[in-house]
Structure formats: structure tokens, C-alpha cells
Amino acid sequence: MKDYLNVSGRIFDIQRYSIHDGVGIRTIVFLKGCALRCKWCCNPESQEYEIQTMTVNGKPKVMGRDVTVREVMETVARDMPYYGRSGGGLTLSGGESLLQPEFATALLHGAKDMGITTAMESMGYAKFEVIKGVLAYLDTYLMDIKHMNAAKHKEFTGRENTLMVENAMKIAQSRMCELIIRVPVIPGFNDTEEEIMQIASYADSLPGVEQIHLLPYHNYGEGKYEGLGRPYLLKDTPLPSQEKMNHLKDMVEKKTALMCQIGG
């Protein structure tokens, strides 16, 4: 009996032919609900667990629906030929998938049963016992570390970073999956050489971690805030220049043993 196929959870989107979040061609399932409130968040409709209405192109659109793992897998299975050719598979994103741990685990389990690779974008905001359950079915953990300073982290995301930073070490030490550290580079928050280096050094100290991704800030999400009737707090924030990103990458690669890549 594959009972886990009947587990249900709440998502707000499924995105096929995603090529920037894990190996190969992937299908991303976006789980709804997040513990953080990052000011730069480009998917603000992901934050509330409640189902919301967002105005898109002048029309109201319901964001969020409850689905079973079976239903999600029907869509995920449609791109099997492309996963096979590219080594791709399922990526969970959010929101924070770990807020729906049973659902997230069941989704990854479903993917593994289909013989495709799994990845999860997450900041690790959960007890490690919860994370451990997920790791059993996870190939690649794309973990966000946004800042090493707890106070500043709280100011920009609404929570301190202690739990997540500790979890990063535990996940790494578990050796149950590949761990990649991702850093959204946000001007005015963490884009100085010093701040980036603090994260990179910590990432370098995590056993088994070989890659760090610097994700340049973008403002594609700005319209969504308007659609949700919320102010966009980072209005007029300049985008990091290509030169700046290259400079940070060079610095990280020079001072750590990590392979650094710009973008996902």
C-alpha cells in the first residue's frame, strides 16, 4: 500500500521545465506557507498558509490549493522523458516546505519511487528530527543562509538565524544528501564583502559542502505585492551589477575551497 500517495498538502504552483534549481530539467512544486518574511521575497504569495486572492494582470486569482501527493505526481510524471535525459526530477520550493513535513516527505518519497532525483529549496526552519525524515528521500538540499548575524537576520526576515545555522551543520554532518548553500545577495542587507565572506566561511566549514550559489537580488516579485495589497519594502533597491557579482564570486573562490556560482 502506498498510503503516502494520499497525503495532502497545500501548494500554490507547479512549475515545469525549471532548469535553475538542481540538476537537469526539473518540476518545481511550490508549497504554501513560510516561517520567514524576507523583505525581498519574490514569491510573497508563498508566505501565508491561508489561501489568498491575488490580482494578476487585473484579474483576481486564487493562490493556493489543497492537493494529494498522487495528484502532484500525475503532473510530475509527465516530464519523465526529460528527467531521464537530463538527470532532472522534482524540486520542492516554497514557502518553507518543512512547515508541511509529512506532505514534503511524501512528495519526495513519490519521486524516489518513480526513480527520479529530488531536491529541496529550504532554509531549514524546523527541528532537526523533522528534517531527518525528509533527508531519507532527498538527493540535494539547496539551503538558504541569508546572514550570519542573528540580529540583522531578524530585522530583514522576521526571525533569528540560530536554528537554521545549527541545522546546516547537522544536515552536513548527517551526510544523507548533497548540501549546497545559497545566498540571496540583497543590497543593503548582506552584499558587503565582509558579510558574504562570513557566510562563505561558514559554508566552507560544513563537512562535504562543495558549492555555494550567489543569487543576485531581482525585483520580479514587486507586482505581486501590489496584487496582494501589500507595500513593497525594497522599492527602488538597485540590482547588483554583474561586475559586483563577479567580484564576490572571485573573492569567495579565492578565500575558500568552495565552487561558487552566480544564479541557481
Binding site: Y17, I19, G24, P81, Y82, R85, G263
Partner: peptide, 22 residues
């Protein structure tokens, strides 16, 4: 943008082959 970088090229080739597999 869908074809940018090595990853874009690799994915593109996989897309073609995946269509052809079917």
C-alpha cells in the same frame, strides 16, 4: 534566458531528446 549558460544548453538538448523519445 532559457538557453543561457552550459545548463541552458544541456537542458535544451535534453528537451529535444525527450520530445524525440516520445
Amino acid at each position: 534566458t532559457a538557453m543561457a549558460g552550459e545548463k541552458g544548453l544541456e537542458s535544451f538538448v535534453s528537451l529535444v531528446c525527450g520530445y524525440f523519445d516520445q
